[in-house]
Nucleic acid binder design. Structure first.
Lengths: 193, 193
DNA sequence: GAATTTTTATGATATGAATCATAAACTAAC
DNA sequence: GTTAGTTTATGATTCATATCATAAAAATTC
């Protein structure tokens, strides 16, 4: 965990309260953000205000590197969905870390690869598949880091915003999936069996 | 250019003739592929045979790293769309290169970031936007590395496979865009002005 | 624990794009 | 230069999902 190292080096910790916008589309990237605690949501928004969830970042994770690395303005909003403690590294600090810390360097490459995997999978879904298939795929994906017997803490709206569907569609299709027996519901929540 | 270095080191060059499949979904990744010459298309295919173009790779570029780095089976097909000369590095060779060659290391990070940027942009499009907007975005993107006055060497089918639309839709919508004056056509080809 | 907000639910209707069908215009191959 | 294969074109019809409307249920806030 690089965050402890950063704290030890004396980097200041910034607090972002729930629902604070950390950065917006169009801004020129200045920092990479390491999450000491909390949760951040990365979303793009279209002209009609429809949101698409590009990623969710939790304690121990970092975000904002790609824009900084390729020096292009942000495409997305990042918003703290919980009160969060964050350490910001500017460009030089980040490049220094990348150079000095071989472990961080290879972690970054793995992290970027993982994100690419997720985005490729979702592009295939949004490009080629209908509502039912998309939802099965995202549910299975979310199941990956969830122990069996646990409940998926995700709303229908969030599923909609990850799959490019509308809430109503998600509600109807999840119900169908439950009727078919491919997902298990308890009080409306999706259960991993 | 790393390819010349690889050649100098004596790595063998493999030839793939046009339309040869280099790897398929489900296979366990074994190599990273450096393109000495030629062109490779990376596509995912759904149950009905509908294709989605995940990426196009040309001379000097490389592909196949993410799957190898995260050790997950391929999601996509890669197919030589031209006769191609390719140098394959296996896992140990690739990790060695990454460790020994700082320049390659940071290039990889930049390349992964760029691909993420493209995929995030397209996810937003496929998730939130209709045919017309999707096509404007992809056309503008393809214009980026095309000199003004040149023609986009891309078929309607390829635009369809990059945007998750159908050929007929692309044909109709591109025609609309031309009528509106937002794209310029010469003999049906899209011209950058 | 009453009030407010968020989430789930369900029906009716509209609509953008897929699908199906058929053909002309180009390009490449022999 | 005729044949075969792509690519572009256009109309008719279908279909999945968005949109609109309205409300019950659940969760949060005060």
């Amino acid at each position: 965990m690089y965050i402890q190292q950063l704290i030890d080096k004396g980097y200041p910790i910034r607090n972002f309260t729930k629902d604070t916008v950390i950065y917006e589309p169009g801004l020129q990237p200045k920092f990479v953000f390491f999450i000491k605690s909390g949760e951040i949501r990365m979303v793009t928004v279209n002209g009609d205000g429809k949101e698409f969830i590009q990623g969710i970042f939790k304690t121990g994770q970092y975000f904002g590197e790609p824009a900084l690395l390729v020096n292009r303005p942000y495409l997305a909003y990042t918003i703290a969905t919980k009160n969060s403690e964050i350490i910001q590294l500017n460009k030089t600090e980040f490049f220094q870390l990348l150079k000095d810390n071989a472990e961080f360097n290879s972690d970054l490459i793995r992290v970027l690869s993982n994100r690419l995997f997720y985005k490729s999978m979702m592009l295939e879904e949004l490009g080629n598949e209908k509502a039912e298939h998309r939802l099965q795929t995202i549910i299975n994906f979310l199941f990956l880091d969830l122990p069996a017997g646990e409940i998926l803490k995700v709303t229908r709206q969030e599923l909609a915003d990850m799959t490019g569907l509308r809430v109503e569609t998600v509600i109807r299709v999840v119900k169908q999936l439950a009727k078919k027996g491919v997902v298990q519901l308890t009080h409306g929540r999706i259960l991993k069996i």
